[in-house]
Design a protein around this nucleic acid. Structure first.
Length: 429
RNA sequence: UCCUCGGUAGCUCAAUGGUAGAGCAUCCGGCUGUUAACCGGAGGGUUGCAAGUUCGAGUCUUGCCCGAGGAGCCA
């Protein structure tokens, strides 16, 4: 019977078959220890000379790292085996003998590993990260689905940019120029008119010349948008979601967090309420460390780090100066220089995880903003329509999935949080 | 685009301006409970490229190429 390695403990004493790849091999005299992985885990198998026919022992002797094999044997509990169980092999079938596998079980440099990403994914740590990514995305969807949100995916090919300024990837569309989406938010603002509360989750593209551990040119963003929700409401939503996803990962992915050697005491501190500070208060905190920072400046990476390290939980910074935020952000009715915007800065120096706020819902004001920033008015006609036919206060945010995974996994670069990262001038493999 | 650091064996790294080395991987041999096993042996090099200084350059100088980290911008 074919058994996946993660279920091996349920089959003690049984004759089973595992199918996978050779992870590593050790030997002592006439005993061979064969470590097999099948994607769900790693198990040790023992082959001793004389226990079986020579064919099985020779196969154990011959197989090389990452050779594909089908192994039959009996499951035995043994505390000397990693994982507590091992298979006493009776037969090893070698499907293909891999030669000179380039990633040996030792340390390698990032320069070496990145072009070998298609193979690097087989390693323990990368396997754990991708499993956590899967669970995190599932937790995000569950959170919104449980609250009656409708997943309404937004287009990837778009006629114009959200903010008009950020660099976009142009695509030829039957002779016209369209762009890969950098956000689904504007479309979400339309679908809330139909469905009330929605989210989209998909890839977004930014052709910025960013070369840092926080940037990918193709990354996944989760964007909820809710009609009749204000700034405080959107912070409540983001807070509830963050607490939920961290809880889910802690409940379901402990093995993977251990593989990653993540300090989970830090994740366990992610409970309500998160600190909420105004931009103005944040400036005071930043200026203690960064003397040259002026009120009105947008946060740079070092400034986010200061905020990030000032608390053990994610921190909401709200009411940014209108000038540093997008045209669609609603202004503070009490102070027109401020916007009803919010960023969530993750702890442990991870930086910005989420950005959002309350949207401008007045037709004339929005038109004024579009003109101020010299955006193509024609392209925004449909967007303006939303303020013409039953406008309402509404809010939403965008969560960067890769940054969130990096934070939860405790790894310092987003390139390891996606199977095939796309970075500045790097699209292989 | 800018700043900093780096490029030596398949990989990870060492080498006062004076014969280019180790560990791992590979191959051969040994060991009946290994835990990145261990022990013995072997093969493996245009020191990123080009020019220069020097009796002599992996090492010093200049230019170029490639990579990493960071900045700006952002999620």
């Amino acid at each position: 019977m074919h058994v996946y390695i993660e279920d091996i403990g349920k089959h003690e004493g049984e004759e089973i078959t595992v199918k996978g790849w050779l992870y590593n091999k050790r030997s002592s005299g006439k005993v061979r220890f064969v470590l097999i992985r099948d994607g769900t885990g790693i198990v040790q198998s023992v082959v001793a000379k004389g226990d079986n026919d020579d064919k099985t022992f020779d196969a154990a002797d011959r197989i090389s790292q990452e050779s594909s094999i089908i192994l039959r044997g009996t499951v035995r509990k043994d505390e000397r085996a990693p994982g507590g169980y091992e298979i006493v092999a009776t037969d090893i079938e070698v499907l293909q003998l891999a030669q000179d596998y380039p990633i040996t079980p030792k340390e390698h440099s990032i320069e070496y590993l990145l072009p070998l990403r298609h193979l690097w994914l087989r390693s323990k740590k990368q396997n754990a990260i991708l499993r956590i990514r899967h669970e995190l995305i599932k937790a995000c969807r569950d959170f919104f689905d449980n609250r009656g949100f409708i997943n309404t995916d937004t287009p990837i090919l778009t006629p114009a940019s959200v903010e008009g300024t950020t660099t976009l990837f142009p695509v030829d569309y039957y002779g016209d120029k369209v762009y890969l989406a950098q956000s689904g938010q504007l479309y979400n603002e339309a679908t809330i008119g139909a469905l009330g509360k929605v989210y989209c989750f998909g890839p977004t593209f930014r052709a910025e010349k960013s070369k840092t551990r926080r940037h990918l040119t193709e990354f996944w963003m989760l964007e909820p948008e809710v009609a009749f929700l204000d700034l405080d409401g959107v912070m409540d939503l983001a807070e509830d979601m963050t607490v939920f996803i961290v809880e889910q990962i802690l409940n379901k992915k402990m093995t993977e967090l251990e593989t990653l050697e993540r300090d989970i005491t830090k994740l366990k501190k992610v409970k309500k309420p998160f600190p909420r500070i105004t931009y103005k208060e944040a400036v005071t905190i930043i200026q203690e460390k960064c003397k040259d920072f002026k009120y009105g400046d947008d946060f740079g990476a070092p400034h986010e780090t200061v905020i990030s390290e000032s608390h053990e939980k994610p921190v909401f910074v709200h009411h940014f100066p209108a000038g540093v935020k997008a045209f669609y952000m609603k202004r503070d009715p009490g102070d027109d220089s401020l916007s009803l915007s919010v960023d969530m800065i993750g702890p442990e120096g991870i930086g910005e995880l989420m950005g959002g706020g309350q949207r401008e819902d007045d037709y004339d004001t929005l038109l004024k903003r579009i003109k101020e920033r010299k955006l193509p008015e024609d392209a925004y006609q449909w967007y303006l329509d939303l303020r013409k036919y039953g406008t309402c206060p509404h809010s939403g945010f965008g969560l960067g999935i890769e940054r969130t995974i990096a934070w939860i996994c405790g790894i310092n670069h987003v390139r390891e949080t996606i199977a095939f990262p796309r970075m500045l001038e790097k699209v292989y493999p």
